[in-house]
Structure formats: C-alpha cells, structure tokens
C-alpha cells in the first residue's frame, strides 16, 4: 500500500503526467474553441491521427521539427474547414459530419502513410523533440525533474491554455466567439457575422487538434502508427465538458487525466502480478467518468451548441 502511495513522491510520475497531458491539452483546447463558437467537432480523433501522420512525414522527408508542427496545424485547419463547410453554411448534423471526418481523416492518414512508406519490417523513425533544459529551473531539486524536463511543445501547450483563456475572457474577439456560441442571433443583431466567426473558430480549433496529434509522432514517440491516437480525441471531448468550457480548467482536467494514466502505468509494475493489467488501463477512463459526473452537472453549456445558424430564422 505504501508503495502505491510512494509513487506520488517520484519525480518521474509528474514528468510523465506533463508528457501524457500535452496532446490532450492541445486537443481539448481545440475542441473547446469549436464548441465555444457553437459547433461540436467530433472530427477530432481523425484530425489528430492525420496531424500525427503529416507532422511525422514532414520531418521524415527532411523538414524541421517545427515545420512538422506547422504542417500538422495546417492539415488540421484544412479538415476543420471541411467540417465548418458542412456544419456552418450547410447546417448538416454536427455529429454525423464530425464522425464522417474522423473516419475519413484516419483512413486518409493511413493511405498517405502507406503510399509514402511501403510496408517494411519495423516502422521507420525520426529524431524527435529533445528535452528542453531551462536554465536554473531544470536544475532545481525534485521540482526541476518533475516539471521542467519536457520538450518544447509541452510548454507551448500550457502557454496556449492560458492564452486561450485570456482571448475568450478579455478580448473583443473572444467575446464575439462566446456570444456566437450562446446565441448567434444576438451576435448578428450586434453586427457580427456568426458564420465567419464559427468557420474561423473551427479552423483554428482543428489546427490545435492537428498539433495534438503531431506531438505523438514528433515528441512522445518517433514513428507513426495508424492507431496511435487511441481514443485521445474522445477523451478531449469529455474533458471539454469536465472543464465547463473553460481553457484553464481544460488544462487542469488534462493534467488530472494524465496523472491517472501515468499512475496506473506505474501501479501495474507494483501490483501487476495479482491483477490483470487491463483493469489498470481502464482506471483513467473510469476516473474521468466519475469526475465528469461530478463536474458536468454544474457545467454551463454554450446554449447554441449544435444548433445550426440560419440567417433570418429564429
């Protein structure tokens, strides 16, 4: 029992938490931005897969790691625009469009990957992002190892959460996005263009999803597998609810989920003999359902979420 608790005292657990959380932070922020403008984007799972592939392929063909991230973001934005086209001006079911995009993007990612890399024994690898040493902070005992031994995209993700919180709360653009998600007719009466704002929010949010996927191939691992996103997109969708549609809470939610995940990995080593490891794999999901039950009841849903906006119709 004490061994199970001792795990929390290891710096490795906390470092793993940040690493595991990073793709979730990107994905959750992306989904959150889409939903704040009133559009559910279930394309996330596929967009992350596609971002992972594009980022990896860019680097494999000699591109810089940052160029890989940029390519993943642009690819994400492209799928975002497709989703936006379907759901905003055309107003089709957001669930169906999103799931369609997930299936399409995942398959297309594998297809392109196979065209570029014909079947081989072991998957080819790239040199991923290396841990970024931050002067002073990284050398701090325990805390340095726990919190400041990460690759650059992790810091970017955390910064993005704070920036997005500021954008939504304190800028006219953020207010415009929120009012479109709450009541597009109110936004229109204020002279805003709900369609343009939604399309923009979806494109940008989807770019963030692409980044989340690319983190997997460019930092967490060094090669691409078609199944590597492994439901992280769906976790992000749940985290948005958990976070009550607030970026800073999304950051906390992603960290919490990642902590469970990192913890169960380590717990497996201690008690793995007695209990099947699949049970541990379930742990973070069970915990997130419980947390969702507690948090979501109080969540304030954007009121126009999933309601298509048609001009002149009330």
């Amino acid at each position: 029992m004490t061994a199970a608790l001792d795990l929390f005292a290891s710096a490795g657990l906390w470092a793993a938490m940040l690493r595991i959380a990073t793709p979730l932070i990107f994905g959750t922020l992306g989904a959150l931005l889409c939903e704040r403008s009133g559009v559910l984007n279930l394309g996330i799972e596929g967009i992350m897969t596609f971002g992972a592939m594009v980022g990896w392929l860019t680097v494999y063909h000699g591109g810089d790691l940052w160029l890989g991230l940029l390519a993943a973001a642009l690819a994400g934005a492209a799928f975002g625009l497709l989703h936006a086209l379907l759901t905003v001006p055309l107003g089709v079911s957001q669930h169906v469009a999103g799931l369609g995009i997930t299936l399409f993007a995942s398959s297309l990612a594998y297809f392109i990957f196979r065209l570029a890399i014909p079947v081989s024994g072991s998957p080819p690898t790239i040199v991923p992002f290396q841990v970024l040493q931050i002067p002073l902070l990284s050398n701090f005992p325990f805390l340095g190892e726990a919190l400041f031994h990460q690759t650059a995209p992790t810091y970017v993700a955390i910064l993005l959460a704070l920036l997005l919180g500021y954008l939504l709360g304190a800028t006219p653009l953020g207010l415009a996005i929120r009012i479109v998600g709450e009541n597009p007719h109110a936004a229109e009466a204020q002279g805003l263009d709900p369609i343009a704002i939604r399309v923009g929010a979806i494109a940008f949010g989807s770019a963030l999803m692409g980044l989340g996927g690319a983190f997997l191939t460019l930092s967490a691992f060094n090669s691409f597998f078609p199944t590597m996103v492994q439901g992280r997109g769906w976790v992000c969708i749940a985290l948005v609810v958990f976070a009550s549609w607030r970026p800073t809470r999304a950051l906390l939610g992603a960290l919490l989920f990642a902590l469970f995940d990192a913890y169960q990995l380590r717990l497996q080593h201690i008690v793995g003999k007695a209990v099947p490891y699949q049970l541990f794999l379930m742990l973070p999901y069970v915990m997130s359902i419980v947390a969702l039950l507690v948090m979501a009841r109080r969540a304030r849903v954007p009121q126009a979420l999933m309601q298509p906006f048609r001009r002149g119709e009330r």
Partner: peptide
C-alpha cells in the same frame, strides 16, 4: 426584437 436577441449566459 420581439424575441430578445440576448445571450443568457453572458
């Protein structure tokens, strides 16, 4: 507007 164009959560 007759049906207010307001966002209730804001």
């Amino acid at each position: 507007h007759q049906h207010f164009a307001l966002a209730a959560n804001l």
